[in-house]
Protein backbone atom coordinates (compact mmCIF):
# COMPACT_ATOMS: atom_id res chain seq x y z
CA UNK A 1 0.00 0.00 0.00
CA UNK A 2 2.81 2.36 0.88
CA UNK A 3 4.12 2.34 -2.66
CA UNK A 4 0.79 3.60 -3.95
CA UNK A 5 0.31 6.41 -1.46
CA UNK A 6 1.75 8.99 -3.78
CA UNK A 7 -0.65 7.83 -6.47
CA UNK A 8 -3.86 7.71 -4.44
CA UNK A 9 -3.07 10.87 -2.52
CA UNK A 10 -1.37 13.03 -5.12
CA UNK A 11 0.58 16.00 -3.83
CA UNK A 12 -0.82 18.24 -6.57
CA UNK A 13 -4.13 18.29 -4.67
CA UNK A 14 -2.37 20.62 -2.25
CA UNK A 15 -0.78 22.92 -4.81
CA UNK A 16 -3.66 25.18 -5.83
CA UNK A 17 -5.00 25.91 -2.32
CA UNK A 18 -1.46 26.40 -1.09
CA UNK A 19 -0.66 28.83 -3.90
CA UNK A 20 -3.80 30.90 -3.27
CA UNK A 21 -3.14 30.91 0.47
CA UNK A 22 0.49 31.92 0.05
CA UNK A 23 0.00 34.52 -2.69
CA UNK A 24 -3.10 36.31 -1.46
CA UNK A 25 -2.87 35.83 2.27
CA UNK A 26 0.67 35.21 3.46
CA UNK A 27 2.69 37.11 0.86
CA UNK A 28 1.00 40.45 1.59
CA UNK A 29 1.91 40.07 5.27
CA UNK A 30 5.54 39.30 4.42
CA UNK A 31 5.71 42.14 1.89
CA UNK A 32 4.17 44.32 4.58
CA UNK A 33 7.13 43.67 6.85
CA UNK A 34 9.44 44.76 4.02
CA UNK A 35 7.47 47.87 3.12
CA UNK A 36 7.27 48.89 6.77
CA UNK A 37 10.93 49.93 6.49
CA UNK A 38 10.21 52.29 3.58
CA UNK A 39 8.63 55.69 2.98
CA UNK A 40 6.04 54.19 0.62
CA UNK A 41 3.16 56.65 0.22
CA UNK A 42 0.61 57.87 -2.28
CA UNK A 43 3.31 60.19 -3.64
CA UNK A 44 5.70 57.33 -4.32
CA UNK A 45 4.50 57.03 -7.92
CA UNK A 46 6.49 60.22 -8.59
CA UNK A 47 9.24 60.12 -6.02
CA UNK A 48 9.89 56.40 -5.73
CA UNK A 49 10.05 54.24 -2.60
CA UNK A 50 13.05 54.59 -0.31
CA UNK A 51 14.42 52.53 2.52
CA UNK A 52 14.12 54.51 5.75
CA UNK A 53 15.13 51.93 8.35
CA UNK A 54 13.19 51.98 11.58
CA UNK A 55 11.77 55.45 11.04
CA UNK A 56 8.14 54.29 10.80
CA UNK A 57 8.43 52.28 14.00
CA UNK A 58 10.11 55.17 15.79
CA UNK A 59 7.25 57.38 14.61
CA UNK A 60 4.70 54.92 15.90
CA UNK A 61 6.25 54.63 19.33
CA UNK A 62 7.32 58.23 19.87
CA UNK A 63 4.98 60.51 17.92
CA UNK A 64 2.31 62.47 19.74
CA UNK A 65 -0.42 60.90 17.63
CA UNK A 66 -1.35 58.24 20.21
CA UNK A 67 -0.53 55.25 18.04
CA UNK A 68 0.79 53.50 21.14
CA UNK A 69 -2.49 54.13 22.84
CA UNK A 70 -4.24 52.50 19.87
CA UNK A 71 -2.06 49.41 20.28
CA UNK A 72 -2.78 49.31 24.00
CA UNK A 73 -6.50 49.69 23.29
CA UNK A 74 -6.33 46.65 21.02
CA UNK A 75 -4.74 44.59 23.80
CA UNK A 76 -7.20 45.95 26.36
CA UNK A 77 -10.14 45.16 24.08
CA UNK A 78 -8.89 41.61 23.58
CA UNK A 79 -8.60 40.91 27.30
CA UNK A 80 -11.77 42.65 28.48
CA UNK A 81 -14.07 41.50 25.67
CA UNK A 82 -13.05 37.89 26.27
CA UNK A 83 -13.66 38.05 30.01
CA UNK A 84 -17.00 39.75 29.49
CA UNK A 85 -18.16 37.11 27.03
CA UNK A 86 -16.66 33.88 28.36
CA UNK A 87 -17.87 33.99 31.95
CA UNK A 88 -21.56 34.78 31.34
CA UNK A 89 -21.55 32.42 28.35
CA UNK A 90 -20.33 29.58 30.56
CA UNK A 91 -23.15 30.02 33.07
CA UNK A 92 -25.67 30.44 30.28
CA UNK A 93 -24.43 27.22 28.69
CA UNK A 94 -24.75 25.36 32.01
CA UNK A 95 -28.28 26.75 32.35
CA UNK A 96 -29.29 25.71 28.82
CA UNK A 97 -27.67 22.31 29.19
CA UNK A 98 -30.25 21.42 31.84
CA UNK A 99 -33.68 20.30 30.82
CA UNK A 100 -35.57 23.56 31.05
CA UNK A 101 -38.58 24.48 28.98
CA UNK A 102 -38.01 25.96 25.49
CA UNK A 103 -34.27 25.47 25.69
CA UNK A 104 -34.02 24.77 21.94
CA UNK A 105 -35.70 28.09 21.24
CA UNK A 106 -33.39 29.95 23.64
CA UNK A 107 -30.31 28.38 22.10
CA UNK A 108 -31.39 29.43 18.61
CA UNK A 109 -32.31 32.91 19.76
CA UNK A 110 -29.14 33.64 21.74
CA UNK A 111 -26.94 32.55 18.84
CA UNK A 112 -28.83 34.70 16.35
CA UNK A 113 -26.99 38.03 16.92
CA UNK A 114 -23.62 36.49 16.14
CA UNK A 115 -24.57 35.72 12.55
CA UNK A 116 -25.39 39.32 11.68
CA UNK A 117 -22.86 41.57 9.96
CA UNK A 118 -21.03 43.90 12.37
CA UNK A 119 -21.92 46.87 10.22
CA UNK A 120 -25.59 46.13 10.72
CA UNK A 121 -25.17 45.67 14.47
CA UNK A 122 -23.17 48.86 14.60
CA UNK A 123 -25.89 50.81 12.81
CA UNK A 124 -28.66 49.32 14.94
CA UNK A 125 -26.87 50.21 18.16
CA UNK A 126 -25.92 53.63 16.89
CA UNK A 127 -29.63 54.31 16.84
CA UNK A 128 -30.38 52.53 20.13
CA UNK A 129 -27.62 54.39 21.98
CA UNK A 130 -28.60 57.77 20.53
CA UNK A 131 -28.86 60.24 23.42
CA UNK A 132 -32.00 62.10 22.41
CA UNK A 133 -34.33 59.43 21.09
CA UNK A 134 -32.48 56.15 21.29
CA UNK A 135 -34.26 53.11 22.66
CA UNK A 136 -31.99 52.67 25.68
CA UNK A 137 -32.46 56.14 27.13
CA UNK A 138 -36.19 55.98 26.36
CA UNK A 139 -36.43 52.66 28.20
CA UNK A 140 -34.55 54.07 31.19
CA UNK A 141 -36.92 57.02 31.32
CA UNK A 142 -39.93 54.73 31.04
CA UNK A 143 -38.64 52.74 34.03
CA UNK A 144 -38.16 56.00 35.98
CA UNK A 145 -34.41 55.48 35.86
CA UNK A 146 -33.78 58.69 33.92
CA UNK A 147 -30.78 59.49 36.11
CA UNK A 148 -28.94 56.57 34.45
CA UNK A 149 -29.21 58.20 31.03
CA UNK A 150 -25.85 58.65 29.32
CA UNK A 151 -24.31 59.94 26.14
CA UNK A 152 -23.40 56.36 25.42
CA UNK A 153 -21.17 56.91 22.42
CA UNK A 154 -19.74 60.36 23.02
CA UNK A 155 -18.99 60.44 26.75
CA UNK A 156 -15.38 59.47 27.39
CA UNK A 157 -16.28 57.66 30.59
CA UNK A 158 -18.88 55.33 29.07
CA UNK A 159 -17.95 54.90 25.42
CA UNK A 160 -15.78 51.81 25.97
CA UNK A 161 -18.45 50.25 28.16
CA UNK A 162 -20.96 50.76 25.35
CA UNK A 163 -18.62 49.10 22.86
CA UNK A 164 -18.08 46.14 25.18
CA UNK A 165 -21.80 45.81 25.76
CA UNK A 166 -22.58 45.78 22.05
CA UNK A 167 -19.77 43.32 21.45
CA UNK A 168 -21.11 41.05 24.19
CA UNK A 169 -24.65 41.34 22.82
CA UNK A 170 -23.35 39.91 19.59
CA UNK A 171 -20.81 37.42 20.85
CA UNK A 172 -22.10 35.73 24.01
CA UNK A 173 -24.35 33.32 22.11
CA UNK A 174 -21.48 32.11 19.95
CA UNK A 175 -19.26 31.36 22.93
CA UNK A 176 -22.20 29.76 24.71
CA UNK A 177 -22.87 27.42 21.77
CA UNK A 178 -19.31 26.08 21.87
CA UNK A 179 -19.58 25.58 25.64
CA UNK A 180 -22.90 23.72 25.28
CA UNK A 181 -21.30 21.25 22.89
CA UNK A 182 -18.47 20.68 25.35
CA UNK A 183 -20.91 20.26 28.23
CA UNK A 184 -23.03 17.73 26.39
CA UNK A 185 -19.97 15.49 26.08
CA UNK A 186 -19.54 15.25 29.87
CA UNK A 187 -21.15 12.02 31.14
CA UNK A 188 -23.96 12.84 33.59
CA UNK A 189 -22.78 9.98 35.82
CA UNK A 190 -19.92 12.22 36.96
CA UNK A 191 -22.36 14.74 38.34
CA UNK A 192 -24.53 12.05 39.90
CA UNK A 193 -21.53 10.58 41.69
CA UNK A 194 -20.52 14.04 42.88
CA UNK A 195 -24.06 14.74 44.14
CA UNK A 196 -24.01 11.51 46.15
CA UNK A 197 -20.77 12.67 47.69
CA UNK A 198 -22.56 15.88 48.63
CA UNK A 199 -20.78 18.28 46.27
CA UNK A 200 -22.46 21.65 45.73
CA UNK A 201 -22.76 23.59 42.46
CA UNK A 202 -19.42 25.41 42.78
CA UNK A 203 -17.52 22.27 43.73
CA UNK A 204 -18.94 20.43 40.71
CA UNK A 205 -18.07 23.40 38.51
CA UNK A 206 -14.47 23.45 39.74
CA UNK A 207 -13.80 19.73 39.93
CA UNK A 208 -15.79 18.38 36.93
CA UNK A 209 -17.08 21.03 34.55
CA UNK A 210 -14.02 23.23 34.11
CA UNK A 211 -11.45 20.43 33.69
CA UNK A 212 -13.72 18.60 31.24
CA UNK A 213 -14.35 21.79 29.26
CA UNK A 214 -10.65 22.39 28.61
CA UNK A 215 -11.09 21.86 24.85
CA UNK A 216 -14.03 24.24 24.52
CA UNK A 217 -12.36 26.90 26.65
CA UNK A 218 -9.29 26.61 24.46
CA UNK A 219 -11.28 27.00 21.21
CA UNK A 220 -13.18 29.96 22.61
CA UNK A 221 -9.98 31.64 23.72
CA UNK A 222 -8.28 31.11 20.36
CA UNK A 223 -11.27 32.49 18.42
CA UNK A 224 -11.79 35.26 20.96
CA UNK A 225 -8.19 36.41 21.07
CA UNK A 226 -7.71 36.45 17.31
CA UNK A 227 -11.01 38.28 16.94
CA UNK A 228 -10.07 40.80 19.61
CA UNK A 229 -6.69 41.61 18.13
CA UNK A 230 -8.18 42.16 14.67
CA UNK A 231 -11.26 44.07 15.82
CA UNK A 232 -12.25 46.79 13.36
CA UNK A 233 -15.83 46.84 12.07
CA UNK A 234 -17.68 47.36 15.31
CA UNK A 235 -15.50 50.25 16.42
CA UNK A 236 -15.34 51.81 12.97
CA UNK A 237 -19.12 51.87 12.69
CA UNK A 238 -20.03 52.68 16.31
CA UNK A 239 -17.53 55.44 17.09
CA UNK A 240 -15.05 55.64 14.20
CA UNK A 241 -12.36 55.86 16.86
CA UNK A 242 -13.97 58.82 18.61
CA UNK A 243 -14.76 60.85 20.54
CA UNK A 244 -11.43 62.35 19.57
CA UNK A 245 -9.14 59.37 19.43
CA UNK A 246 -10.51 57.78 22.60
CA UNK A 247 -11.54 54.46 21.06
CA UNK A 248 -8.99 54.19 18.29
CA UNK A 249 -7.44 50.71 17.93
CA UNK A 250 -4.58 49.34 15.87
CA UNK A 251 -6.68 48.44 12.83
CA UNK A 252 -8.55 51.76 12.72
CA UNK A 253 -5.22 53.63 12.78
CA UNK A 254 -3.92 51.35 10.06
CA UNK A 255 -6.94 52.11 7.88
CA UNK A 256 -6.65 55.83 8.57
CA UNK A 257 -2.98 55.84 7.60
CA UNK A 258 -3.84 53.94 4.44
CA UNK A 259 -6.63 56.30 3.45
CA UNK A 260 -4.40 59.34 4.00
CA UNK A 261 -1.83 57.75 1.69
CA UNK A 262 0.84 56.90 4.32
CA UNK A 263 1.22 53.33 3.13
CA UNK A 264 4.59 52.69 4.78
CA UNK A 265 3.28 53.73 8.19
CA UNK A 266 0.12 51.70 7.65
CA UNK A 267 2.09 48.53 6.89
CA UNK A 268 4.30 49.18 9.93
CA UNK A 269 1.17 49.35 12.06
CA UNK A 270 0.00 46.10 10.49
CA UNK A 271 3.36 44.50 11.16
CA UNK A 272 3.04 45.31 14.85
CA UNK A 273 -0.28 43.46 14.79
CA UNK A 274 1.32 40.61 12.85
CA UNK A 275 4.03 40.20 15.46
CA UNK A 276 1.54 40.18 18.32
CA UNK A 277 -0.66 37.57 16.62
CA UNK A 278 2.35 35.53 15.53
CA UNK A 279 3.62 35.22 19.09
CA UNK A 280 0.21 34.07 20.30
CA UNK A 281 -0.45 31.94 17.21
CA UNK A 282 2.83 30.05 17.32
CA UNK A 283 2.21 29.23 20.97
CA UNK A 284 -1.23 27.85 20.21
CA UNK A 285 -0.15 25.88 17.13
CA UNK A 286 2.69 24.35 19.14
CA UNK A 287 0.21 23.25 21.76
CA UNK A 288 -2.03 21.72 19.08
CA UNK A 289 0.83 19.89 17.39
CA UNK A 290 1.80 18.41 20.75
CA UNK A 291 -1.73 17.03 21.07
CA UNK A 292 -1.54 15.72 17.53
CA UNK A 293 1.54 13.71 18.55
Amino acid sequence: MNVNKKKIYPQWFIVLPLVIYVLFFLLPSILGVGYSFTDWSSKSAKTGIHFVGLKNYIDIFTSNKNYVQGILHTLMFTVVSNIIKLIPALFLAILLNESIKCRGLYRTLFYLPSILPFVIIGLIFKSILNYNNGLLNAALEFLHLGFLKQKWLSDLGVVWKSIFAVDAWRGVGYVMTIFIAGLSAIPSSYYEAASIDGANFWQKLRMITLPMLKGSIMINLVFGITYGLKVFDIIYVLTNGGPGHATEVLTTYSFQLYSTGQYGMSTAMNTVLLIITAIIGVGVVKMMSRQEG
Binding site: I14, L18, Y21, L23, F24, F25, L26, L27, P28, S29, L31, G32, Y35, V222, T226, L229, K230, T251, S254, Y258, Y263, S266, T267, N270, T271, L273, L274, T277, A278, I280, G281, V282, V284, V285, M288, S289
Partner: peptide, 25 residues
Protein backbone atom coordinates in the same frame (compact mmCIF):
# COMPACT_ATOMS: atom_id res chain seq x y z
CA UNK B 1 2.75 17.37 4.72
CA UNK B 2 2.86 17.68 8.50
CA UNK B 3 4.83 20.87 8.06
CA UNK B 4 2.43 22.19 5.40
CA UNK B 5 -0.55 21.52 7.67
CA UNK B 6 0.85 23.65 10.47
CA UNK B 7 2.10 26.20 7.94
CA UNK B 8 -1.50 26.62 6.74
CA UNK B 9 -2.83 26.67 10.31
CA UNK B 10 -0.74 29.79 11.01
CA UNK B 11 -3.24 31.60 8.79
CA UNK B 12 -5.89 31.10 11.46
CA UNK B 13 -4.21 33.84 13.44
CA UNK B 14 -2.54 36.26 11.05
CA UNK B 15 -4.31 39.41 9.97
CA UNK B 16 -4.51 40.24 6.26
CA UNK B 17 -2.30 43.16 5.29
CA UNK B 18 -4.65 44.87 2.85
CA UNK B 19 -2.29 47.63 1.84
CA UNK B 20 0.28 45.23 0.43
CA UNK B 21 -2.45 42.88 -0.76
CA UNK B 22 -3.54 45.64 -3.12
CA UNK B 23 0.04 45.70 -4.40
CA UNK B 24 -0.05 41.94 -5.02
CA UNK B 25 -3.42 42.22 -6.76
Amino acid sequence: NKFLYFFILCGLFFPINYVTLIRVL
